[in-house]
Each structure stands twice: as structure tokens, then as C-alpha cells.
Computed example of a mutant assay.
Amino acid sequence: MFDFKSRRSLVMDKLREQDDAVAIITNPDYVYYLTGYHGALGIEWGRPNIFVQTVDGDSVLIVPVMEEEMANRQTDVTKVVPWTDGIDEEWRPPLQGYLDKYKDYKVSVDYMWIPRMIWDFIGDVIPKDRISDIGGEIDKLRSVKDPQEIQIARHAGEVAVEMLKGAMDVAAPGVYEYEVELASKEAGTRHAAKLMEEHYKDWQVFNYPGIGNKQVMASGPDITMCHHRSSMNKLIEGEPLFICHCGTAEFKNFFVGFDRILFVGDMNDKVAEMLNVAEEAQKAALSQIKPGAMAEDVFKAYAEVIEENGYPIPFRAGRSIGFSYNAYPALEKGSKAVLEEGMTFAVDGGADSDDYRTQVGDSILVTKDGFEYLTPFTKDHNELIVGK
């Protein structure tokens, strides 16, 4: 288990710096980072899960009663307070108790993520000028991974690579995209289960090896749609197949980015030419990765390659990865974020035209001397031909 108490202590330090008495956190990824509580049905089901951290050290989870047992088994917080759908004002009375206690003090929230109904409820007690944001500070804490997180990141990268290998084993002319996804997810799930059995037996009850979310995949005439999902399309001889693992490749809640263009049956020279540009752009971005580098400089190196070759900039150069789909900081234009050892990123390259789009992406760990691939996999075009 992660050292959640130490993480909460750092949040208490931030509360003191901001002169806040209590933090009210609702983002599920923040709640997981600070408590270990995860897997519950949340606000999308009308059921907020609320974490309260006081500057004095109280840590309280306010959760639906159906999640009470899981919360108690996953966390080491001071108290778990259950509430029931539609009964006795649900989550409001326990939260009201903390608002009343600290109504004469400053309160912080995760402003960018807090559901409107909770924001309004807090605002009825605490004047808006006494509510500050703690979300940005939590983002900074989460951006640098500890040794246990780095181990999980490496294993998540392994799962992503095995997913692509599984996809490549079945991809061939005439095969449905959904069949490629099935093979990918089976390979990833089996490897995740193997890793959990070997390294995480102490967490067995919460080891979930299954790969979820629809796979980003596009082929043939649909290749130009960046986030098309695997479908009833059949793979076409001589046409590219794009597979993106963002939001799909995950291990113990750690999400990685990993993208490759595959050549179905035979090489496509036009796509290969564009892919060369994408790969050079990624290579330029990676050349800037090291502690002390500025995020905007990584983007600048990537963008120069793409524009010099006559293509438009398709997206940022990369994003922070971890226990969220997307996290701070991004490798984007104008970002003054400074890279640190222990940060993890998905770093991409791309080149798009009216007929084709190409993209290559890998997840990396910032090391003291540069970076380490979390998704080491070939970029040799001949080795990316499938179904020959």
C-alpha cells in the first residue's frame, strides 16, 4: 500500500501555507491519491464521494453506504461516514457538520473538478472569498512518482506492450477491427494477472487485471479520425492500422500512452513517409527530456520538425501520465512547467494529411540523466507489417 498518511501530511502543509482550515476534495483521482479509496460508482451515478482533510489531521471519507465496506478495507482514514440514496438529505448533513465547524475560517476545494451541487452547497455556508483552490497543489504532488508508483508505471508499460503484441498476432487483411481489440485486451489482461500474481499478492482482493474501455483504433478510410474506436470495419491490404492505448492500457489504476501505426499486409509508402516525420518529431521531443527542462521547450522541438516538413501541428507534444487519464503538466506551447526526475509522460509525434494521419507515442520516465522508456517497442517499419 502507498504511504497515504505522508501524502495527506503534505496536503496539510499546503493548507497551512494557504491559511486554510480544511480541504474538501471530490475528484476521484485525488481521493485515490490521498486515501487509496477507488472503484466506487461516483458522481456520474448521482453519488458523490467526498474526502475531507482538516489542517488538524482529521481525514474523513463521506461515501454511499453501499461503498462503506470497500472504503474501510481500502483506506486508513480517520473515519468513513456512510450515507444512503434519497434518505435524510444523503451526503449533506455530514458535510454540513464540517462546514459549520469551519464557517469562520478559509476552506479549500478542488475547484476545477468539484460538482456544481457540492460547490453551491458549500457556498451557502462559506463566502466565496474564503474558498481557495487546492487542486493545483495536489496536481504538483502527484506529478512526481515515488518508487512504488514507478514500479507500477513500468508494469503498466509492460501491459501496453503485450496488448500491442496481441493485436499484431491477429491483425491481417479481412480481419475485423473488433477482433484485433479482443486479442489486444486478452493479451493485456493475461499479462496484468501474471504481474499481480508475482508482485502484488498482498493487494489480491483489489487486484483487477481486466482491461476496460473501448480501444482507440482506425484503419482504411477512417484512419484520419484520431479517436475512432474499433468497429465492424475489416482491415484492408496495403492500408494502415492505427492503435492507440490511451485510456485503455491500465495497470492498478495507472494509465499509460502508447501508439503505433501498423501496415496491414504490406508497406504503404505514403504512410511510411509521413510516419518518418512523426517519429522524427517524437525523437526531437525526447531529446529535450531531462530534469530541469521546460515543458514548452519539449513542445518547441517537436513542433519545429512537423512544421519544417509542411504539416500542421496536430496536438501537444505530450502529457503527464499516472493515476488519471490526463494530468499535470502537459508538454505544450507556453508551459513553464519544469521537468523533474520521477515525472512520467506520454510523448508523441504526428503528421496528418487529408488522406492519412500518422502518430507514434510512448510513455517515459524522467531519470536523473534523461529518460527511460516505459513502453519499449520497435519503430522499424518492416517489423510493423502485420498479416503478411
Score class of each variant (00 low, 15 high):
237 E>W: 06
268 N>F: 06
293 A>P: 05
327 A>Y: 12
224 T>D: 00
236 I>M: 03
340 E>S: 15
235 L>G: 04
218 A>D: 01
323 F>A: 04
262 L>Q: 05
276 N>F: 15
269 D>N: 12
274 M>K: 11
249 A>D: 06
303 A>R: 00
222 D>F: 09
322 G>I: 15
243 I>S: 13
262 L>N: 12
326 N>Y: 14
240 P>A: 06
256 V>P: 11
291 P>W: 08
226 C>Y: 10
326 N>M: 13
278 A>N: 05
316 R>Q: 14
311 Y>I: 05
225 M>F: 13
301 A>P: 00
320 S>H: 15
281 A>H: 03
329 P>A: 05
253 N>G: 12
323 F>M: 10
245 H>F: 10
270 K>R: 14
265 G>I: 00
329 P>D: 01
283 K>H: 11
257 G>L: 11
340 E>L: 10
216 V>I: 15
252 K>A: 09
329 P>W: 01
276 N>Q: 11
337 A>F: 12
229 R>M: 13
334 G>V: 10
274 M>F: 11
302 Y>V: 02
275 L>R: 07
259 D>F: 02
232 M>N: 13
278 A>L: 07
265 G>Y: 00
322 G>P: 14
318 G>R: 11
256 V>D: 04
237 E>D: 11
219 S>T: 06
344 T>F: 04
275 L>V: 01
221 P>W: 02
307 E>A: 14
277 V>K: 11
282 Q>N: 04
285 A>G: 01
323 F>P: 03
271 V>Y: 12
323 F>H: 09
302 Y>P: 02
281 A>Y: 04
